[in-house]
Structure formats: structure tokens, C-alpha cells
Design a protein around this nucleic acid. Sequence first.
RNA 1: AACCCGGUGGUGUAAUGGUAACACAUCAGAUUUUGGUUCUGAUUUUCCAGGUUCGAGUCCUGGCCGGGUUACCA
Length: 562
Amino acid sequence: MTESSVPAHRDFVRQIIDEDLKTEKWAGRVHTRFPPEPNGYLHIGHAKSICLNFGIAKEYGGKCNLRFDDTNPEKEEVEYVDSIMDDVRWLGFDWEDRLFYASDYFEQIYQWAEQLIRDDKAYVCSLGLEEIRGGRGSASEPGVDSPYRSRSVEENIDLFRRMRAGEFPDGAHVLRAKIDMAHKHMLMRDPIMYRIRHTEHHRTGHKWCIYPTYDYTHGQSDSIEGITHSICTLEFENHRPLYDWYCDALGIHHPQQIEFNRLNLTYTMMSKRRLLELVQGKHVHGWDDPRIPTLRGLRRRGYTPESIRAFVAYVGVTKNNATMDMCVLENHIREDLNKRAERRMGVLNPLKVVITNYPEDQTEEMDAVNNPEDATAGTRKVPFSRELYIERDDFMEDPPKKFFRLSPGKEVRLRWAYFVTCSNVVKDASGQITEIHCTYDPATKGGDAPDGRKVKATLHWVSAKHALQAEVRLYDHLFVKEDPDEVSDASLDWKSNLNPNSLIVQPAAMLEPSLGLAKTGERFQFERMGYFCVDSDTQGAHMVFNRTVTLKDQWSKEQAKG
RNA sequence: AACCCGGUGGUGUAAUGGUAACACAUCAGAUUUUGGUUCUGAUUUUCCAGGUUCGAGUCCUGGCCGGGUUACCA
């Protein structure tokens, strides 16, 4: 599972590359690329592609390019370009000097289009959008040839040049490949190569008013960059014949397209379109909302790049439709943070405790271990005094059998401090517990009983007068269903499965004072509660923490059983 | 519907014609100054039917089921 170890198992993509190296298909070269369209933010599904492409390049001593697939000016923006570069770097990958844009190749791609026209493999079609669709036929019936299919090379070249020159309005003409209107692949029935769009492009401005389509751009871009293995997701499998057709028709370097399965996760969704809908519909607070699986969201939530890389390596690469359990992702961040995160005490839902036999004005500094998994993390001092806060869930007046924590007459350990026994429960007029009274055993200082007696539970606590009050945001699954698309009746859609409790804010959690020094992004384990990180909303003394993930919790499972 | 691709425990991934395995999840237990961590054990698997073979999860044929595609998006 560790990412440094060389995996014994070779997934099918690596097996293909092994074979290519053996047969010297590419003269020993391995060159991949990660080709995002800058029309949205990257999510953990993209992380799989990034790790695969950059990872393979690294393993084989090859190269991986970052290339923006920016052929549709209507949807693409610089904002996305910048965020994508930032996310790829954050994940831990480096494209060195190989930052490219498909739009850099527009001139070459245009010249190749003229070449195809001259070779009688492309023509300008002046049918309208609906007519083109209609003419394409259907799965059961072949399409019919466009009346413009037999235009002369001269007329095609003239028309195409005038398209480029801006003589025609949007939609007046398109350039189509001349393949076969009866082909069994609908995609091969004279696909569109160029469309007229009088739209400003985020990089080329108004230089172009005709833009090439994905199919007529992607393989050519790969070819120009000398890519050997063009790795993409399964939904492009159908496009491979076209990819191959263009490379062959042009007679240019012809990379091999390989398709792998995309990552799906339970209780969330990866669709760019739906993520956009969540953001624009204000169902979440932006692209970096810690509840959505964008890389920025996960980052803000407290996920480390290491944990995401390890997770992605764990899920593997196949051609199966696969949905990973969210708990597997959560286990990876737990595993990472268990080793690295220092422990602190934080009471999320405070209940006042008075140690009645503890001196009024006394304060003691207790020694606390920072990380039991890492001796080099050292220790810290935690102030202890007569009035404390403990977790409200750690006390029950009338506990069930398997409840080990504090209840009347029961003795528990306060971590790194003393054994205490509950002597009294104080309630308000409505019967709400307002505070509890305990006595402590001075002989148990530090948390060990010299007489060897045991307690069943250890509680975290914070000294009331030393406590740092902070806002803590508790996150849960974005959706209540494993599969957000599962709805009880057809009038409902996936949004009806949004979890109304995916964010619960604790405005006044009580934290141990050492946390006041924590910086934005810093991660801790709040003992017994989970892993937390300092949110970017932190302003001076007003600190905000995000819960990355809870600790595994046997007691909550016990409770769920009823 | 057509075309393309897939079906191995609950989930994901191995086994590359030779004993079906690993991880997570679930359950039970041990250890524990976190009901965390760690450790031990248990439960549960080759879609179906034929064929080839000494031998099939793997190869072949036919079915069944699931997904993708059928855009002037990528």
C-alpha cells in the first residue's frame, strides 16, 4: 500500500507499456500527457488520471506533459487554467517545461485540415445543425450523403479559407471529414472537424472564429507532442476509431490511445456538470467547499496529497465499472494522519465539570504526549484546574450496559490528569443537565493509579478558564444515499438526496490553549474525536477548524445497533 | 435499437491454462492512559449453458446482466 514500494502487480496499462518496451515499438520512449479541459475544477477522479499519467512517466523514466484541451472557447476560462495548474502541483506532480495548450496548435491543425481537403478527405458542409443530425440516420438506418459532399477541392478550399476569414456567421458552414455515411459507428458518419464560433478565446483572443472539435484536435495534439501512450477514460473508447482515422489520414506520428475506468465514490458525485450545479445553486459554498470531492475541497477539508496518491494507487486501474466505498478514502487519510498529526484535546459539545475537592485557585500543568505513534513529536503542557469541560456525550445519567464513560458513581480517567468520580448532577428547571460534580484522587496524577486499579474509560477535557473558544465545522457525507441517483419516485432527482446535515457548525467548541498558535492548514487529531485542520476562514482570534474525518468509533456502532 | 466495453466475496483489486488470493467492510477476541492505533481469528467469491483440455476464473460459442456512446461538448 505504500506508494514508495514498487508494485509487483502490473495493471493492464503498464503491461501494454512493458510489451511496447520489449518490442521497441516507440524506440524505448514513454511519453504521456494529462489533458484537462479548462472548464471546471479538478476532482479526485482527475487525480487518478494525473497519478496514472505522471506516475507512469516517472516509473519508466519518461515524460508527462500538461496540456490544456482548450478547443471550446464558450466554456473555458483562465480561472480554471490557473486552478488546474495549482491543483496538479499540490498533488505533487511537475510538468517541468512542458506546459502546452491545444490552442497553440491551431495553425498546424488548420493546415492539416486543408491537407485533408486536398486529399478529398474533408469537405465544407452548408447544412444546418438539424439537417446534419437528420442526415446522419440512426442506429438502424444508414445516413444519407450531404448534398455538399461532392464539392470540388477548389470550392472547399475557398469556402474553408473564407470561414477562417470570418466571412460567415456562426453555423453557416462546418468542415466535415469525408468517411462513410453508412458506417456502423455513428461517430464515423462524416464527423464535424470545424465549426464557426465568433467567440473570444481565453488565449487566442479574436484571432480565430473557427474552432476544431475534440476529435479533430486531440490525436493531432498528442502527435505533435510525440506522445506514445494517450491514456484516457472509458467513455472515449468509441472515439478511438476516429482518433486512429485522423492520424492515419494525415500520415502523422500515431500514438496509442488506451482507455481505463474512471473513479466513482459512494455518497458523492464526480460529474463536472453536477458539481457546477451544486456550486451555482448554492447547495455548497464554492469549489473549495470541504464537502465536495474537488481537489480544492479535499485540500481544505484536510486531506493530504500523500493520502490521495495512496488511495488512487490502491483503487487500481482496470476497465470495470467500479465504485469505491467512501470509507476507503477515509481510511487512507486516517492512516496518514495517525502517523503524522499531533494530538490535542478539544471539546466539541461542552459540559461543565466541577472537581469539588480540587483547590479553587490552583492550576497544574499536565504533561501530554503529542503523538503516541511518533516519539520524536515530544510532549506539551496542558493546564488543569477546578472547572473543566468534557464532551456532553461522555456523560449519561442513566447509562446502558455497554457505556463505559462517566455516570453517577462511576470513576473514569481524565487523560494525562486524574481519575475522577461523579458525585452529583446539577440540572436546570427544565431538567437539562447544566453541570456535573466530581471528586478527584490526587494520587492518580498523570493518569496512573498507584494501587493498580483500572478504569474503563479515558476522557478528553479542557480547563474552563484556559479554554480557547473556536468554531468547529463537522462534515458528513454530501448525500444520504450511497448512490445519489437512487430516488423513490420519478419526480425526484439526485438533489433530493442531499444530506441536510452534511455541515454542522459548533460555534463554541472549547479547545486546549496550545491550539491558539495553529496556522491555517495545520492538522491535528483531537483525541477521541477525529482529525481536524485549521480553516482559511480563521481571522485573528476567531479560529475555525474543519473536521477532516472522525476516528473509527466502536461505540457509535454499538449505539446504532440499538 | 445499433455500436463499443465490462461481469471474481458486500466493495475494490489479484491469480496471464495448474491449490481462487489480498485489502477494506462485517463479526468475534487480545492489547491499550484515545471505544483510536496495533495484533489474532471468523464469515463471505469466479453471471449462466455448452465446448476445447489431463486440467478453465482464464481459451471458444451462445445467452443473461451492467456500463458507455449514438453533440457544430470534452
